[in-house]
Amino acid sequence: MSFLDAVERTSLSQFMQNTNWTIPVIQSVHIMALALVFTSAAVVDMRLLGVTDRDQPLQRMTARFLPSVGWGVLTLLMTGLLLMVAEPKRALLNPYFQIKMAAVVAVCILTWMLAKAVHRHPDRWTRPDMRGRAKLIGGASLALWALIVVAGRWIAYGP
């Protein structure tokens, strides 16, 4: 607990707590990055599920949208870290935050593995015998991102 108290007393944390605009501005950037990440990931997931953009090769979709996911996640981590420094107890002791972070780790590993797999075997994923596995990956990714958004919003209502 003393570590969180120490974080709360840092000048950066104090500055964010004592100005009424810093937290909403950082949250706004966090939401914009979230929109970029969620939509970019969803576009790839929908392609894997075979719902949209079936005329587009999967590799083209991942090449276009997965870098956006990567840069967006980096922005989310940086803005998220600032929000944690501002209000460490609001986040770290919150069960919704813990669920969210577990899902973030899982989806990052899944996405990284997908990027590598598509890079190595670009045409494999659209083969009929791979359709089931592609749908499973797309569905799992979409479900994890949805969980992240839900848990993220509910941090504000945590115990």
Binding site: I31, M32, L34, A35, L36, F38, T39, S40, A42, A146, V149
Partner: peptide
């Protein structure tokens, strides 16, 4: 969810 997809 809605605003994320609108903006994205």
């Amino acid at each position: 969810f809605a605003l994320a997809v609108v903006l994205g």
